[in-house]
Design a protein around this nucleic acid. Sequence first.
DNA 1: GTCTATAGCATGATAGAC
DNA 2: GTCTATCATGCTATAGAC
Lengths: 185, 185
Amino acid sequence: MPAPQRVSAETLVTAVRSIAEKDGVDAVTMSAVAAAVGVRAPSLYKRASNRHELLRLAADDVARELGEEIAELSRRVDDPRELLVGTARALRGISSRSPKVTTLLFCAPAPLAGPSPELVAPLMATLLAAVTRLSPEDPLSAARTLTAWAYGFSTMEQNGGFRQGGDVDAAFERGLDIVLAGIGA
Amino acid sequence: MPAPQRVSAETLVTAVRSIAEKDGVDAVTMSAVAAAVGVRAPSLYKRASNRHELLRLAADDVARELGEEIAELSRRVDDPRELLVGTARALRGISSRSPKVTTLLFCAPAPLAGPSPELVAPLMATLLAAVTRLSPEDPLSAARTLTAWAYGFSTMEQNGGFRQGGDVDAAFERGLDIVLAGIGA
DNA sequence: GTCTATAGCATGATAGAC
DNA sequence: GTCTATCATGCTATAGAC
């Protein structure tokens, strides 16, 4: 039986995420994270072999969150359109609560700092399955249209991309309608 | 008459952009840039008062490039749909040639490292004007749908967002059709 | 698994001469 | 505007004891 870790995986990832949101992704350093979890920097190397792996913990955690919301939706609803609506809104919600870490999904400083492909693939597969039911010909392109829009919107919203005022919630719902109509929903 | 600068603004911004593309945004440091332009680090502080201002030079340069392509399009074509198609393709092209710096547009490590709002505003205004001719009611939402999709697609394409293979060019054109149809083009 | 200690290096930034 | 010199700090990462 291995010795218990003094710092749980959950504590660690929570610290990484909170530092990233508070002071930016660049502020996630081995020593800052170590200090946050009450440990010395060298000890962290038993958990993540470098700074980028620390960031991946956070990125994976956000991917996991999104995956759970999608799974929960899948259980509750059968209508594919409803599933896609829920997924887009879930992404926007997560991005609003964790803007910095959410950008890591497709805007990481290095590939190793982004989410694990094995973790993202099943999410994409679920979306693709739902899209396929709506748009049997070239569902991959249709799914990419939806994800690109949802990610772009969420990122821009959180990074000052929408400075002209107006009703941003309305813009989101309008965009959702446009994209879903276009993919046959 | 002020003494001529030994390092032209163009040389400087070119160096920043090439370092960012080659080794990532994190590699843009005062000393790395100084070395690239053949100057000592302290001299750079006369040109940019910190690292983020260096990044802004690059972000603004990409915004300028995009602005020039849009202006050129505006001169050549009158059809608003064609202008929007050209703009989306221009953004994708720039993102493909300068992926790292293009992400700075809406995914900068700090607001000061992103493009100057005064530089981005006129671009958005041009787009909004074109969209207004196609979609008079709530053109702002329509314009946001287009920009969010185009930015999201370009970012994901350059950051491993599309790992399932398939025809990415086709996905882009399909997305463009979907969004333009939705905003009334 | 965690610690102390430290190597080794890069960093941003400033002062003052030319 | 650029230089030399330097400060003070921060960082990643490793070695070896407990």
